[in-house]
Design a binder for these strands. Structure first.
Length: 677
DNA sequence: GACTGGGCGCTTTTT
DNA sequence: GCGCCCAGTC
């Protein structure tokens, strides 16, 4: 037994030792998945597999960081340096920076975030004269994202016989064109262009030569392009290890395709399968409840968790009069348990399905002076100042970036209103000239306000003059000069009269400078492009660290709870219409909701409390609520058929009967229908 | 630009 | 019922 298999259970050991050939590790919640992954890699390194031939991909930066850290601890930092461990997206960015020109991507491409995407999509819809009332930019974006994640092209979509869908396809194409013209890729494009890159035989061979061992974490979350990447690179040597849990697939709505993990054996018929079913996290009662719920899902890899820990308290289910009482009960119970069990507040979590639920809990927590963290919501990178400064920086790095230019063209105000922008865009289109050039040479065009345009030209000029600092060690200097150059301090003064707000806003600007400072001293590449890339790809990192580490009660959605664990968990709003959510009931997508419930239950180590109400305010009405079918399942009972029927009807009536006729609604085809075809 | 009124829509969210 | 976003107005 090697150093890296000692102390593992037989299944874990089997997974660690199966280093050659395809391997599917079905790792139930709390079964030591990360342990297996890290030990497996350490084991491979110890047996002479060169670190540079291993490619390990995850979905989040956090997971990648943890993996790297833990492997380094096991195998030594030096030995792990040459490993490639990172998110799919980071890997694609790196590869595209190197070979992007082979698929028509300029090497200095920028990555556009959700905000830029929205601007671009709005523009696309406007150009196509599709009114926003007909297709909402946000809806269109998420639809396009889903299409991209399913490897469906704009052309395919535009050819749809459904008018709505065909319009989406046209918007999709226009949107892509405008991003490409701006030298930008969105998150989905990173994966798509990587797939294209791997369609080139020469490049594919290079990648196959370099990466002989693949490891994919959270494989149940794999979407179309990610799957293609794995299949292509791993198709040759077939040392593909995928780890995941089909029962925890909760991102189907954004393109994750659970069939990929269900059908792994079809892609790799010689695959070995290891099931990790011993749960080291929760008490027997909690595991029993989790099993009882998930058992009801139809298509899944058959497995059941066994609790390694002994028995504990029974799962508590509690019915409350309404949502206010629910919040009060939970908060009082937390205080009670915290003192009774001498448990720090950091061990408590309140988990909910939707973002409207936490309000009342926050209120109660405040009233009881209980410190808490609400995970999610506004990020540092959503702040106006941060977005502004980053837009300026993007423009320095990539003058073609039209979206960033539009964002800051009148910030601080320099007299360029909507009309000037519209005219400038028209000129740019007519003359086939980059928008920045139109502004830079603005004086030549009599359609444009001379005074305003002179200011814009000056701005573009000064951004250009900062370009020489963009490479190498000038990064910090660049940010500082930029902030001064555009007089951002004055802008903050102008916008906010109150001193406290001003200093708070300025803090954000300072923080960017700090980040630049850190970045400049961190890696080998300290240039502007790599800084922007880092900021865009790691936008959420620092916060969740902070948000979970302190001794505070955690409030978060079931989705963000995946992968975490807490001593005591409160699963709230366990009602028909919330969990399972009404939309999923209507669409008949109950299985993913059941997995969500399963994820929630399995977060708890020692104690799980589930609450539901007798009545709840929804859409301005007060409705009688019904306990979730998952509650019945958990107790080993069949949910009464009439409950489900009744719940469906009552809720549909409430949603549809909210003053407007459902028939008056623009007819977006139901999600379900368009998704499955 | 700042303000205001009307209309709409109302799951989940990482990269 | 509430909040957000947009368009229109001054």
């Amino acid at each position: 037994m090697s150093k890296f298999t000692a102390g593992l259970n037989p299944e874990q050991r089997a997974a660690v030792e199966a280093t050659r050939g395809p391997l599917l590790v079905l790792a139930g919640a709390g079964t030591g998945k990360t342990r297996v992954i890290t030990h497996r890699i350490a084991h491979m390194l110890a047996h002479g597999v060169p670190a540079s031939s291993i490619l390990a991909m995850t979905f989040t930066n956090k997971a990648a960081g943890e993996m790297k850290e833990r492997i380094a601890k096991l195998a030594g930092r030096k030995r792990t340096e040459a490993l490639t461990v990172g998110t799919f997206h980071a890997f694609c960015v790196k590869s595209l920076r190197q070979y992007g020109d082979r698929v028509g991507v300029r090497k200095a491409f920028g990555i556009c975030d959700a905000d830029d995407q929205l601007v671009a999509m709005k523009q696309a819809l406007r150009e196509l004269q599709i009114p926003e009332t007909q297709i909402q930019p946000k809806t269109c974006l998420s639809r396009v994202s889903l299409l991209k994640n399913q490897l469906i092209s704009a052309e395919q979509c535009a050819a749809s016989s459904d008018d709505w869908e065909a319009d989406i396809g046209r918007a999709y194409r226009r949107y892509d064109e405008s991003l490409l013209a701006s030298g930008l890729l969105d998150f989905d494009d990173l994966l798509l262009f990587m797939v294209r890159l791997l369609e080139d035989t020469r490049t594919l061979t290079e990648f196959q030569k370099r990466y002989k061992y693949l490891l994919i974490d959270e494989y149940q979350d794999t979407n179309g392009p990610q799957y293609e990447i794995v299949k292509r690179i791993g198709g040759k040597h077939r040392n593909v290890c995928v780890v995941g849990d089909d029962d925890q697939s909760i991102y189907g709505w954004r393109g994750a395709d659970v069939t990929k993990i269900l059908n792994f054996e079809q892609d790799f018929p010689e695959a070995k399968i290891v099931r990790l079913e011993t749960n080291y996290r929760s008490t027997a009662e909690i595991i029993k409840g989790a099993n009882a719920v998930i058992r009801n899902n139809k298509s899944r890899h058959e497995k059941a968790l066994r609790a390694a820990a002994g028995t504990g308290d029974a799962i508590v289910t509690r019915k409350l009069r309404d949502e206010e009482m629910e919040a009060l009960f939970v908060v009082q119970d937390i205080l009670h348990r915290a003192s009774e069990d001498r448990e720090p507040l950091g061990e408590f979590a309140i988990l909910f399905r939707t973002q409207v639920q936490p309000r009342l809990f926050e209120l109660q927590l405040r009233q009881h002076y209980v410190p808490y963290n609400l995970v999610g919501g506004m990020s540092f990178f959503d702040r106006k100042e941060v977005r502004d400064i980053l837009a300026f920086l993007r423009l320095v790095a990539n003058p073609a970036d039209e979206l960033s230019l539009l964002r800051i063209i009148n910030t601080p105000p320099r007299g360029i209103g909507a009309t000037t922008v519209k005219n400038a865009l028209a000129i740019a289109a007519k003359q086939r000239m980059p928008l920045s050039e139109v502004f830079a040479r603005g004086i030549e065009f009599k359609e444009l306000q001379p005074n305003a345009v002179r200011e814009a030209a000056r701005l573009i000029e000064s951004l250009k003059s900062l370009q020489h600092l963009a490479s190498g060690s000038g990064l910090v200097e660049l940010v500082k000069r930029l902030v001064r150059e555009v007089r951002y301090a004055d802008e903050i003064k102008r916008c906010y009269s109150d001193a406290a707000t001003r200093s708070k806003r300025w803090e954000a600007v300072n923080e960017i400078m700090n980040m630049a400072e850190i970045h400049a001293h961190h890696g080998s590449e300290a240039d502007l492009t790599s800084f922007l890339e880092d900021v865009t790809l790691n936008a959420n990192d620092d916060r969740d660290e902070e948000q979970t580490s302190k001794d505070r009660v955690t409030l978060m959605t079931l989705h963000s709870a995946k992968g975490l664990e807490f001593g005591q968990v409160y699963l709230v709003g366990m009602e028909e219409g919330i969990l399972p959510h009404i939309r999923c009931i209507q669409d008949g997508d109950i299985d993913e909701e059941r997995r969500l419930a399963y994820v929630g239950i399995t977060r708890a180590k020692r104690r799980l409390t589930i609450s539901y109400t007798a009545s709840r305010a929804r859409y301005g009405d007060r409705l009688n609520s019904l306990p979730s079918r998952f509650l019945y399942e958990m107790l080993g009972k069949k949910p009464p058929a009439q409950l489900i029927e009744k719940a469906g009807k009552a809720l549909s009536a409430a949603v549809g009967g909210n003053g407007k006729k459902p028939a008056a609604k623009k007819k977006p085809p139901t999600r379900n229908r368009s998704k499955s075809r």
